[in-house]
């Protein structure tokens, strides 16, 4: 008999990946130009974690799933319009900054505090999910920090699969160097799993799921607590989009044979 899980997914809100990102430096340090105007999405790897979490919760009766997110409320509202149609969830919202230059340690502390306050959460059943890196800070540290804040010493990063076993333990597949996977077995929750892409595609939009979710999401957004983050001995001296411009030689009207010869010569020379 599998044991049921209380799955908490931490997911940030990041700019829609096709947007042009341009850093600007203001009084409070660097941020993205027009940050509030950029369309946002649920962080891609964290979204995979959410889908995997929902799948696991569905498979094991009695399991529960929360989505905990720290972002400006307006952005969260916007992202929930899409994300809430994907899987059944309960939202725990923290209203605060979510840009890539915001300190991870303080972000983690706010998120851990929000998780501690979830009334029905049974810590002994907790699987803390998230992306192994965000598309904003892209450091791969926040989730570990939350785990530590909560005192969880079994942590996995780059996770592509979790397989609950009959004895209450679970097997985890983590990405390691050379396109390999490390297989570990953990005796049971609590544990932290930072997800890579997993194996599930993005779920279809489901209006029924959306309607049901919204009943709890709207009040959660209205209840969102404000979180403030101040710089702590961190100073940015320069932030820029890399401007590496190459002189591209454009080869037109050359027969395929000739191009092929040129390419072969290029790839075979040391």
């Amino acid at each position: 008999m599998n044991q049921l899980f209380h799955i908490v997914v931490c997911a940030s809100v990041v700019p829609d990946p096709l947007q042009t990102l341009e850093p600007v430096t203001g009084a409070n340090g660097p941020s993205l130009k027009n940050e509030m105007m950029l369309p946002a999405i649920l962080d891609p790897w964290a979204a995979h974690a959410l889908y995997e979490g929902a799948n696991l919760a569905r498979q094991i009766a009695g399991s529960k799933l929360w989505l905990v997110s720290l972002a400006p409320k307006a952005k969260l509202q916007q992202v929930m319009m899409t994300a809430a149609q994907k899987v059944p969830l309960q939202l725990v919202a923290v209203d605060g900054p979510c840009g890539g230059f915001v300190d991870a340690h303080q972000t983690a502390a706010l998120l851990a505090a929000a998780i501690r306050k979830i009334p029905e959460l049974d810590f002994s059943r907790l699987l803390l999910f998230g992306g192994w890196e965000s598309a904003s800070r892209s450091a791969g540290v926040t989730l570990q920090l939350i785990g530590e804040e909560l005192g969880i010493v079994d942590q996995f990063q780059g996770v592509d699969a979790i397989k609950p076993q009959d004895d209450g333990s679970f097997e985890v597949l983590e990405r390691i160097e050379g396109a390999r996977h490390q297989v570990s077995v953990c005796t049971g929750p609590p544990a932290v799993l930072g997800w890579a892409t997993g194996s599930l595609g993005e779920p279809r939009n489901d209006p029924q799921v959306g309607m049901a979710n919204m009943r709890s999401i709207m009040p959660a957004l209205q209840r969102a607590t404000a979180g403030t983050i101040a710089p702590d001995g961190l100073q940015y001296s320069n932030v820029a989009a890399p401007k590496q411009q190459r002189q591209t030689q454009i080869v037109k009207d050359k027969p395929a044979d000739e191009i092929a010869r040129e390419i072969v010569q290029w790839i075979t020379q040391e």
């Binding site: 904003s136 800070r137 892209s138 961190l234 100073q235 940015y236 001296s237 820029a240 989009a241």
Partner: peptide, 11 residues
Amino acid sequence: FYRQRIEGSLT
């Protein structure tokens, strides 16, 4: 930062 799209120097 931002998945190799922005580079920052910091102390």
